[in-house]
Every structure is written in structure tokens, then in C-alpha cells.
Design a protein around this nucleic acid. Structure first.
Length: 261
DNA sequence: ATGACCTAACTTTTAGGA
């Protein structure tokens, strides 16, 4: 089962690239972030024409996540628990059947950016992470294969940043954010990319400005975190750089892992 | 050269992104 994640920065603008990606990469599940529209406005027909199901949690203008899948999603969860008055569309989760009866739970998440540091936006980011950690703790008790995929807005280490000195006080690199990402791994989750790749300076995001893409000056902020039962089955994890090089590209590119399920 | 982007929206400027 191939599970991919991609922050598309507007699903309407990116629809041609999205359809190309589904046709060429053939993911079983594709997690989207920043669809930037209400679920009712999601271009579902074009995707259904390729044989894919769509389940979206959206809002006007900002945020928004979705699950695109060959198998129909089951037991859909919209939003993290303990949301209170937080109505930002940043989390959707569902179960998917594998080819031979295996089942995998997959979440598409869009973690808050948190900039500028030291503001209520940063506080919100950390609080959101605490809710994610609590939810992950509950999922782990199920002892099933699951994947928490998405735009974490966190560079786990300096080697995941093109210029760690310039970025050291940014919310994406702050130690408080890194500590909570590490807490997820201490619970028992594994960064799928680092199972297969030890090289520094491998990125999933390149800013539109300052020629960052052409200079390969980016950030590794999109991640697939695997439960122990998923790590047991993972056979590969790769960053697909091609979509970032297209005209009218998202500033993120897809990353995927393959599970033997 | 201290610049350089992109998207959505009660759009002709602003907020948010990272």
C-alpha cells in the first residue's frame, strides 16, 4: 500500500498537477493539506473519474485537509479530540483496506505554522501538538499499523534545513516544536524517511522566493510517522521532487512510503 | 543589487504562509 502526502497550496489551482500525480504515482492513499476551500468546493468529480474516493475537511480560504484513496475510507475521524472552540480544518483520519485484507489507519494533518515565535500563533502550535501527542498515544494502544502523514511545519533537525543558523529562531525550528516532534517518536512513532535515508539536506518544501528551488535551498517539513506495526511493514520512502519543478507548482512536493499490506 | 513569491478574498490592498 502506497501512502503519499502533499501540501498542494490550493487544490483548485493545483488540480491539473494533482490529476497528473494520481495517474503517474498511483498512490493507494494520498493525504492533502492546504486545500484552501470548503469540502463542498473540492473538485471531486475529476478525481472520482480516475477511480479515487475523496474525503475532505475544509474551510474558506485557509487550511483544509483531505484523503484521496482507491479504497473507500472507513471510520472517518474529522478533527483532533479536545478541539474546544478550535475550528481550523487541520486533521482527518480514516481506515483503508489493503490489497490482501490488511487494514491501515491513515491521517492527513496540517500542523500550525506557529510564526512569529513568541505570539499566540506559536502557543497555538504547541497546544495543537499536545493534542496530537495525546491522540497518537490512544492510537498506539490499538496496536495496529497506522501512518500520521502531513505537513508538520517542523524541521526535526538542523540537517533538515538549508541554513540552520538563519532559521534557528523560526517556529519551524524552535526547540519547543522539535521537542514535541521528538515526543511523538519517543511514544513509539518512526520518521519513515529516516528509516531509509541518512543524507542531510533532503527537502520537501522550497520557498517561492529568492530562487530557493533552483538553488535547492529548502526544508524537510512534510513527514510520515509510522506506528511500530507500520514500521514492520514499510519497504520504502521517497520524496517525489518532480511536481515541485513544474510551472505553477505548489511550494511543497509529495513524499510517500510503501507498506507491505 | 540586500531584490526576488503565491493564494484567497466583502480584491485594486491585505493577511497568511514558511
Amino acid at each position: 500500500m502506497k501512502i503519499a502526502t502533499w501540501n498542494v497550496n490550493s487544490v483548485k489551482v493545483r488540480l491539473p498537477h494533482l490529476l497528473d500525480y494520481l495517474k503517474s504515482a498511483q498512490p493507494d492513499v494520498l493525504c492533502l493539506q492546504e486545500i484552501k476551500c470548503p469540502a463542498a468546493d473540492f473538485p471531486q468529480l475529476e478525481i472520482a473519474a480516475l477511480g479515487y474516493h475523496v474525503e475532505a475537511l475544509g474551510q474558506r480560504a485557509y487550511n483544509g485537509v483531505a484523503l484521496i484513496s482507491k479504497q473507500p475510507p472507513l471510520e472517518i475521524v474529522r478533527g483532533l479530540p479536545e478541539a474546544g472552540d478550535d475550528d481550523q480544518a487541520r486533521y482527518i483520519e480514516a481506515s483503508f483496506g489493503g490489497g490482501d485484507g490488511g487494514e491501515v489507519r491513515v491521517a492527513s494533518l496540517y500542523l500550525p505554522n506557529g510564526n512569529p515565535s513568541g505570539t499566540d500563533k506559536f502557543t497555538y502550535k504547541l497546544a495543537w501538538m499536545e493534542r496530537l501527542i495525546a491522540h497518537a498515544r490512544g492510537l498506539l494502544q490499538l496496536e495496529i499499523p497506522f501512518v500520521l502523514a502531513g505537513d508538520y511545519n517542523i524541521c526535526p533537525a538542523d540537517e533538515d534545513v538549508y541554513d540552520p543558523v538563519a532559521w534557528r529562531d523560526d517556529a519551524l525550528c524552535r526547540i519547543e516544536a522539535r521537542a514535541r516532534f521528538r515526543a511523538l517518536t519517543y511514544l513509539g512513532l518512526t520518521d519513515a524517511y529516516r528509516v531509509f535515508h541518512r543524507e542531510p539536506h533532503r527537502y520537501t518544501f522550497w520557498d517561492y522566493q529568492a530562487g530557493r528551488w533552483n538553488r535547492d535551498e529548502g526544508l524537510r517539513i512534510d513527514h510520515l510517522l509510522l506506528s511500530p506495526q507500520a514500521v514492520d511493514r514499510v519497504t520504502g520512502c521517497e520524496i517525489d521532487k518532480a511536481p515541485r519543478g513544474k510551472d505553477r507548482a505548489s511550494d511543497h512536493t509529495p513524499i510517500w512510503c510503501e507498506l507491505a499490506v
